[in-house]
């Protein structure tokens, strides 16, 4: 139980895909123009990550080492197709705004990296926990980026107006350059916080 818990925590903090490993950067930058998009994208990736990890782990004794990457990609592609069809059917608005980035979950390097590094070598439960941790870590991270960009760029928080007439939204934050800038600054902040925490732990 403890092991599962630490696998989840590992994905949330120490190996956070967005802020520590800097993987899956394309959707991170592209869909974070509004907070709901960040949540939707994050949960879609989490779903694919948990189930692809589960299946890779279950099949790990049958997948030959030499062709493992194509096998992983096929498993991942199957689940991202499921997500794509479900989103189109149940939340068409979200599907519309995430657009091309839903089928592109297949080539999200977080998922392939977890399949290769964790699921191919561990049991199904640990792999699922790892998938869940990484997925939620990704979700929280891109939602955070999306909140910053939405508040600064559109003056709204999850769609609610928060400007209060105090400031004028800067449209550039929800355009392409804002994505790079906000991600870069948050990455620096997260890195500094983590380094400070490590230093404190080492001192104790």
């Amino acid at each position: 139980m403890n092991k599962l818990f630490s696998a989840i925590k590992n994905g949330l903090l120490d190996e956070n895909p967005t802020f520590r490993l800097v993987l899956g950067t394309c959707p991170t930058l592209a869909v974070t123009t509004a907070a709901w998009n960040g949540v939707g994208m994050g949960l879609a990736v989490t779903f694919v990550l948990v189930f692809s990890n589960l299946f890779v782990s279950l099949l790990r004794r049958f997948i030959p080492h030499r062709v493992r990457i194509p096998c992983f990609i096929l498993i991942i592609a199957a689940f991202s197709t499921i997500v794509d069809l479900c989103l189109q059917a149940f939340v068409p608005a979200l599907s519309e705004s995430l657009g091309i980035f839903i089928p592109l979950i297949v080539v999200n390097c977080i998922i392939l990296a977890r399949a290769e590094a964790v699921a191919y070598q561990h049991g199904p439960l640990i792999s699922m926990a790892d998938g869940l941790g990484c997925g939620l870590g990704f979700t929280i991270a891109i939602t955070l980026i999306a909140i910053v960009r939405e508040v600064l760029g559109s003056g709204t928080f999850f769609g609610l107006d928060v400007t209060g007439g105090v400031y004028v939204p800067m449209a550039i934050m929800v355009k392409a350059p804002g994505g790079f800038l906000v991600y870069g600054l948050l990455l620096a902040a997260f890195g500094t916080l983590l380094a400070a925490r490590r230093k404190k732990e080492a001192d104790e």
Partner: peptide, 16 residues
Amino acid sequence: ALRGTPIALIAAGLMA
């Protein structure tokens, strides 16, 4: 704090 990837992203933002 900005060394490595963060400054690269900010530079990319300016290029964008």
